[in-house]
């Protein structure tokens, strides 16, 4: 704990800022029902009420409390992005390490499949897949996870490849160690830091991706509160010069900026320690 605090104190301003924002978002997401004054989908007033003591940030196009929906949106948008990233990472990194360790046909087949997925722009691929499987939360998570397996696979394979040529991996192989040991004990610990940094970056992409899909009306479906669709539903207000609809988008921006600040610092630290 004391170590963590010292690490925090030594970080540059941008990274400290990022860590605080991430912490706040996590707390809001976890305790959403305690923080929000109203129910997630409850209609509590007239359409587009202004900011007031009763409606902190006013109401939306259906008369639901904006602040409440913003708080619940934290949980939905961030939670789904996290779930999707975890799925993509688990599959992608295991396949990537496997391809690097086994080489030959396994590597060639997996890499070709991934190449084809990567050759289609991800937003286009996602939209086409969503046309086929239909728009629902489950299918969205499935489609985005599938798409993001590709870059994770590439990174895990590339970093694992620099590890599998090391003599200590050869020593373990010549000892007769089995695949689970090689993956979990020899390779994974040595690429973990790369994967963690990549996890942060990919989470940002996935998060922006989900927000963009919801904004286009093809992601998280109403009446579930989420940051992307909140902007879409209330965009009309902007043409009257009202900033309220921009708040969810600003929340998205704030969180991704914060994560990027923290990762940039982590990567900088890692590369600094190397030389």
């Amino acid at each position: 704990m004391a170590n963590l605090f010292r690490l925090f104190a030594a970080a540059p301003f941008t990274a400290r800022f990022g860590m605080i924002v991430i912490l706040i978002v996590a707390v809001i997401g976890l305790f959403a029902p305690l923080i929000a004054p109203y129910g997630e989908t409850a209609v509590v007033g007239a359409q587009y009420e202004p900011w007031s003591r009763q409606y902190l940030l006013g109401t939306d196009n259906l008369g639901r409390d904006m602040f409440t929906r913003l708080v619940y949106g934290t949980r939905n948008t961030v939670g789904l992005a996290l779930l999707t990233t975890v799925i993509a990472f688990t599959i992608g990194s295991i396949l990537g390490i496997l391809a690097a360790l086994l080489g030959r046909m396994t590597d060639r087949i997996l890499s070709r499949i991934i190449d084809v997925i990567m050759a289609i722009p991800s937003l286009i691929l996602a939209l086409m897949l969503l046309t086929i499987v239909g728009t629902s939360i489950a299918s969205m998570v499935f489609v985005i996870a599938l798409i993001y397996v590709a870059p994770v696979f590439r990174l895990a394979r590339a970093s694992a490849q620099t590890v599998v040529v090391m003599d200590y991996v050869q020593a373990a192989r010549l000892r007769g160690e089995r695949l689970p040991w090689l993956i979990l004990r020899e390779v994974l610990p040595n690429i973990a830091s790369t994967l963690v940094a990549e996890f942060g970056l990919r989470f940002c992409f996935v998060f922006l991706f989900i927000a963009a899909l919801s904004f286009l009306g093809l992601g998280i479906q109403p009446p579930t509160a989420d940051w992307g669709s909140m902007l879409r539903e209330n965009a009309t207000l902007i043409s009257f010069g009202d900033v309220t609809p921009l708040l969810p988008a600003a929340a998205i921006a704030l969180l991704t900026v914060s994560i990027n600040f923290v990762i940039d610092w982590m990567l900088h630290r890692a590369s600094g320690l190397k030389d």
């Binding site: 200590y168 000892r175 040595n190």
Partner: peptide, 19 residues
């Protein structure tokens, strides 16, 4: 496998840095 063991050229890459 046990009876034939290797010692490698580069001490830096011969040992797993995380063990």
């Amino acid at each position: 496998l046990r009876h034939i063991q290797m010692v490698y050229q580069m001490p830096d890459t011969a040992l797993n840095p995380k063990q």
